[in-house]
Nucleic acid binder design. Structure first.
Lengths: 254, 254
DNA sequence: AGACTATGTTTCATATTGTAAAATGGTGTT
DNA sequence: AACACCATTTTACAATATGAAACATAGTCT
């Protein structure tokens, strides 16, 4: 039951939009109805409405649906309106250029990080844009920074589920994660050493708003073959300094 | 009255999402209600629902709203699911790199072009991303290509409104526009010579799907100081060839 | 060719949810 | 203190949303 009368329909429609994923970008009516827990007639009507608004496109040959051009437009407007993104972009570009590695800006949503911006290393021409993708927070450098600065209540709510283990290096024990996050808080940055993806390493630093709350994190990362422990030690102060400058742009002053 | 019962609410919520623009990224309840033609109680409830879904964020200090992180995520998924985008990206990157200018991929929505992808000239580090923005079709090279390949009915529906005139070069007479589009059809490409923006020139070419229908257009463009008529003549076959390769990727064969 | 299955679309009957005016709350200005 | 304006909540009341059943379409199997 939604908090307010008059919103159940809206939330059902949003559930349909969220049913599309990177791994399943095209779905039929039955699959969408199931994913959004709706009757197929209800799903059909809502999909037709969303299609008329351009948020969804229908493939008339296969009777299946995809997210449509108005969803791209909406995402673009959302990105250009995002103050974190706007404040961070110049620093991320400078960081990627100076280090020669990929830099990202991420926020926490639920137990995952959401990539708001990404500036690719020049090694990576042609990569698929990651903006808008999400990753298990406990396995990323940015996620560990964000988790480290949560209140106890917020953190416990996230830990209620089982932690994913994408690689052998992923920390899944709550106790071990707590210890790791204590360390992150103390040292002011986090490293993810092949915890999300074999062969990938990154260092992340906190971005604070004008009230001093950690609202985002930036990272710089790349392949472990290139990012040796010595190289990570060089990149860490650069990431911290870039994050500090972004924090100042957002109005933070110690 | 919506086409189907059960969809009026959904369309109202979408109207709220679409009320946010690049020029007005942050709006209060009253402004949003007016823009979406809703009662403020109805708007308030729907905004709260959209906020709970992350599509909208509320600034608690100013009681105003912006598009939220889930809208960014939705746009990213929509982009990565878009077959035109996926098929075109490598060609756009090659085109931008070889020409040193900015290349775009656009589709027609209503009387406007919507930018699905953009690869910037290396002159343009730090520019705001244009993905998801829209422009009057009759003033852009891609728009003229797309308009040139519409049916008479589709074209007349678009001409029912008054044509914008962003610069002195913009064609606004329907008769002149028809002549220009006949020319575009014949020569197989379009040039926009400071018709959208003073100082900006671009050449556009059609992208066809497996059935031969023009479903998108690509362009390559830059400042008129650099893009002399001689330079445009050099770029034109490059744009046409890139568009032809994209069309082949989409399954088109003459 | 006919039967069957699965999915999408439309019709019909029935509540359930959506709506907006009025009232209240909060903040800033005079 | 009074007033203006915007946001939020309450209240009363239809109007819209919903889903089962029926129908349509396409593909598969015998």
């Amino acid at each position: 039951m939604p908090a307010y009368p008059g919103t159940q329909s809206v939330l059902r429609a949003v559930a349909l939009l969220k049913a599309f994923t990177d791994s399943q970008p095209e779905l039929g009516l039955k699959e969408l109805a199931r994913a959004a827990k709706l009757n197929k007639t209800t799903a059909f009507r809502m999909l037709t409405a969303l299609e008329s608004a351009g948020l969804i496109s229908k493939n008339d040959e296969t009777d299946s649906y995809r997210l449509g051009p108005e969803a791209i437009a909406l995402g673009g407007r959302a990105l250009r309106a995002n103050r974190l993104y706007l404040a961070s972009r110049p620093e991320l570009e400078a960081l990627a250029q100076k280090t020669g590695e990929t830099a990202t800006l991420e926020v926490l949503t639920g137990g995952e990080t959401l990539i708001l911006d990404e500036v690719l290393s020049h090694y990576f021409v042609g990569a698929t844009p990651s903006i808008g993708t999400r990753w298990p927070a406990h396995t990323t450098s940015t996620g560990k920074v964000l988790l480290a600065h949560l209140s106890t209540e917020e953190f416990d709510a996230i830990l209620s589920g089982r932690l994913a283990k994408p690689t052998a290096n992923s920390v899944t024990s709550p106790a071990a994660l707590r210890r790791e996050l204590n360390r992150v808080r103390e040292q002011g940055y986090a490293v993810a050493d092949e915890e999300l993806e074999v062969g990938h390493v990154a260092v992340g630093a906190p971005v604070r708003n004008h009230e001093g709350r950690v609202v985002a994190a930036i990272s710089v990362g790349g392949p472990s073959a290139r990012l040796t422990p010595e190289r990570i030690a060089e990149l860490t102060p650069r990431a911290i300094q870039a994050a500090d400058r972004i924090s100042k742009t957002l109005g933070y002053s110690k």
